[in-house]
Amino acid sequence: MKRLFLACCLAWPAAAATHYLTISGLGGEKDYEQRFAAQAREVEKLLEGSGGEVNVVTVSGAGATREKIKAAFESIAAAAKPADAFVLMLIGHGSYDGSAYKFNIPGPDLSGAELAALCDRVPAGRQLVVNTTSASGGSLEALQRPKRAVILATKAGTERNATVFARYWVEALRDPAADTDKNEVVSALEAYRYADRKTVEFYETNKRLATEHAVLEDTGAGEAVRAPSTANGQGLLAASFPLLRIGGAQRAAANPAKRELLARKERAEQRIDKLKYEKAAMPLEDYRRQMQAALLELARLQEELDK
């Protein structure tokens, strides 16, 4: 399954762009205002520094009015193409009245349905919405749609306390450790797992009862889950959604002289994935021997590619 995810990622058209819209909403208190604005700034900085064709738009603090948010969506909708990707990140407080979620901004709040409608107007073929606010679980129903992955800081609208998920989501974009498969691309799934784990650790370490439980839904119709897996059918889109590129993976693809090596590398990678799937059914010694050989081959090919 992982190979499939990677293949999707590499198959993403080179010319495709990723449009990022980050909105930090109303803090209510000075501490929160500062924290949310700082997180939005850091996201902006990390995305702009990631290279590749990216369009980064940030709407923050007092400027995050309904009008300005709509204007930001419109500008992205005008620029985006169906081959592009779109990422919406919401930082701040949310509320849930039992039936509808609202994102707190200066002036009238934005409902989950309104946010969904704005996203729908962006023609990008694949979308990711990361709602890190309190009560964000209440926004799932409005936001979920095929080809859109939705990550929420809370599993339900009733988890109303201020969240720490955003802090670790930003950290996932900054920390190379989030790229667990070391393919120089932090996928949405990797970032989700990183932020979720750090959030859980935060509550554990501080011996506090966890008041937020992040979830992910990316099939467009199912229940959001804590731990996406092949078993529950969640995570496929998020795994293939390149949130942030952190290396030169794309550069190699552009060099015709290395295409043959790249094809061999691809085959070696496929062999490794196949071996992993067969591991349980193989004598361990055979697995070790074959995996060692495959990994060595891949290492040598990479060495050649890097020359």
Partner: peptide, 22 residues
């Protein structure tokens, strides 16, 4: 280093170390 690459086959520093050890 085997375990590192089993988890992330494309991890370049580990690839280099595997080549060195080999």
């Amino acid at each position: 280093v085997f375990l590192a690459l089993e988890a992330a086959p494309g991890y370049k520093p580990a690839q280099r170390l595997m080549l060195e050890l080999n």
